[in-house]
């Protein structure tokens, strides 16, 4: 029997991500269409959304829960800022340089982090997040110390085009970059879905079959670092200022929270969740100033208790529940093929 067996389950992981396109598209359209407050506000949320994608990739696909993606994020951001302040203002150059800086940083840190698993990684990455702020504060020539850098020149999309300063073009540009980077992440993760799921599920058996597990995880971590670096570039492009506090523990915690709420196995879910969390935080900051940690903590607790697996898993359960309810309503028995899990 040499016929190729059908593989209906193959595209499940990509199909799971399609529902996220709707709120993403809606949010962007609304923001782009309206005036004043919204375009700038949403644009400023996108760097964290992309950072959340990076964190979700490492936490979900590599199975290493991390607070440490702020390091490549910072590397990308400061590379972009310094390039812009030195007169090189082409956006594609910034994005490439930032991605490379992020990948390099994540590659270095990954050599330590990927040798460990589970909560040890979380612990170590906590230290990395702290060290990132400390480095940013102390490396004054690059970061401007605690005061940070301000008045960073706006990027140009192409040589000869006007700088991206107006809110709507910045929003469209940031959305394009975020969507492109997220889509690239999704496609790459899908291509290696089998490998990554196997390695996460049974590392010993995978190694005994010849798979260099640590190398795979390092590659995922480094790739995620490139995404985080790109997010850092977006931070500069949307804010045009940066302080060490922007690349510290609070940001890392936010990104991890977004990944947890969105579902660590769903990069686009993490992006949408980041926008949601930031929205909630901004609303709360207006009414209860100074209590952002309380809100964040409460959201963490709620997410862990109420949403095991994040919103993505909740949606999957909801869909399965709907399907089940529909099936019990049908009078005739189900065909044998439905015995297989989807």
């Amino acid at each position: 029997m040499t016929a190729r067996l059908p593989l209906p389950h193959r595209w499940d992981d990509l199909r799971r991500w399609v529902p996220w396109l709707l709120p993403l598209g809606a949010a962007t359209t609304l923001a782009a269409a309206s005036d004043g407050y919204w375009p700038a506000t949403v644009a400023r949320m996108l760097p964290l959304a992309l950072l959340a994608v990076s964190v979700a990739t490492v936490t979900g696909a590599a199975g290493l829960p991390t607070l440490g993606q702020v390091a490549p994020y910072a590397a990308g951001a400061y590379t972009t800022a310094r390039l812009a302040m030195a007169g090189h203002t082409l956006a594609p150059v910034h994005l490439t340089a930032a991605a490379l800086a992020g990948a390099f940083t994540a590659g270095l840190l990954g050599m330590l982090l990927v040798r460990h698993r589970g909560t040890v990684v979380l612990m170590l990455s906590l230290a990395v997040a702290e060290l990132t702020t400390i480095t940013a504060t102390q490396w004054r020539t690059v970061s401007g110390g605690t005061d940070g850098l301000a008045g960073i020149p706006a990027p140009h999309l192409l040589p000869g085009t006007p700088p991206l300063t107006a809110d709507r073009p910045v929003l469209l540009y940031a959305t394009a970059v975020t969507v492109a980077a997220t889509a690239a992440t999704m496609l790459l993760l899908h291509r290696h879905h089998l490998l990554l799921t196997a390695v996460r599920g049974n590392e010993t058996r995978a190694a005994a079959s010849g798979h260099p597990v640590t190398t795979y995880l390092w590659l995922v971590h480094t790739g995620a670092g490139a995404i985080a670096g790109t997010a850092g570039a977006l931070l500069i492009h949307t804010h045009r200022w940066i302080t060490p506090a922007d690349v510290g523990f609070d940001t890392a915690a936010l990104a991890l929270l977004a990944a947890v709420i969105g579902g660590t196995h769903s990069p686009p879910g993490a992006a949408v969740a980041a926008v949601l969390v930031l929205g909630v935080r901004d609303v709360a900051a207006a009414d209860w100033p100074g209590h952002a940690p309380l809100l964040l903590g409460a959201l963490f607790v709620a997410a862990v208790y109420l949403l095991p697996g994040g919103l993505t898993a909740a949606l999957t359960r909801l869909r399965a529940e709907i399907r089940r309810v529909r099936a019990t309503r049908r009078p005739e028995p189900l065909p044998a093929a439905s015995r297989r899990t989807s």
């Binding site: 915690a253 991890l256 409460a298 963490f300 607790v301 862990v304 208790y305």
Partner: peptide, 10 residues
């Protein structure tokens, strides 16, 4: 760990 993290923030 994430739960204790949230409690720590609170």
């Amino acid at each position: 760990a994430l739960l204790t993290f949230g409690i720590a923030l609170i």
